[in-house]
Amino acid sequence: MESIKASLPDVIQQRIEDLVNAQTTDEEMAAHIKELGCRIAALEALAPEEKGEEAGQLGEAVHRLCERIRRDYVAIAYRQGLVDGMRMDKLAAEE
């Protein structure tokens, strides 16, 4: 039990630091998505008329890729939580 008491503050502190230092808060994500939409529109406006549809498709592909990256970050955070939980279980079993 002593090893749990010794490790728990470090684990909790690391997770708190992760949350505090996270760059993807809801407000920031909304602003980034809005900016992405504006940039896609600018890309479409820059493309010649015959390439406009192609530029729009590229912009949409970029948007989908950003969504996939966001989901991957969420998955990474979930896995980190599982790793932390397994560490705690291991420490508890040692006691």
Rank of each mutant, 00 (worst) to 15 (best):
M1R: 15
M1Y: 14
E2P: 03
S3L: 11
S3P: 08
I4W: 08
A6G: 03
A6C: 07
L8I: 04
L8F: 06
V11P: 01
I12N: 01
I12A: 03
I12W: 02
I12Q: 02
Q13P: 11
Q14A: 12
Q14N: 03
Q14S: 09
Q14R: 05
I16E: 00
D18L: 05
D18M: 08
N21Y: 02
Q23G: 09
E27C: 01
E27T: 05
E27Y: 03
E27K: 07
E28D: 12
E28V: 11
M29C: 04
M29V: 07
A31W: 05
H32D: 15
H32M: 13
I33S: 09
K34F: 05
L36Q: 09
G37N: 01
G37H: 00
C38Q: 12
R39A: 02
R39H: 11
I40S: 00
I40L: 04
A41S: 06
A42D: 04
A42K: 01
A42T: 02
L43W: 00
E44R: 06
E44N: 03
E44Y: 01
L46P: 08
L46Y: 11
P48A: 03
P48E: 04
G52Y: 03
G52I: 07
E53L: 05
E54Q: 15
E54S: 10
A55D: 02
A55W: 02
L58I: 10
G59W: 02
E60S: 09
E60V: 02
A61L: 07
A61R: 11
R64V: 08
L65Y: 08
L65R: 14
L65I: 07
C66L: 13
E67W: 10
E67R: 09
E67K: 15
R68W: 14
I69T: 08
R71D: 12
R71F: 10
R71G: 08
D72C: 13
D72I: 14
Y73Q: 10
A75Q: 11
A75I: 08
A75V: 10
I76K: 15
A77K: 06
A77C: 04
A77H: 04
Y78N: 13
R79Q: 10
Q80W: 06
G81Y: 01
L82Q: 13
V83C: 05
D84L: 09
D84A: 08
G85R: 10
M86Q: 14
M86C: 12
R87F: 06
D89A: 15
K90M: 14
K90T: 12
L91W: 08
A92K: 13
A92N: 12
E94N: 13
E94A: 07
E95D: 09
E95A: 13
E95V: 11
E95Y: 06
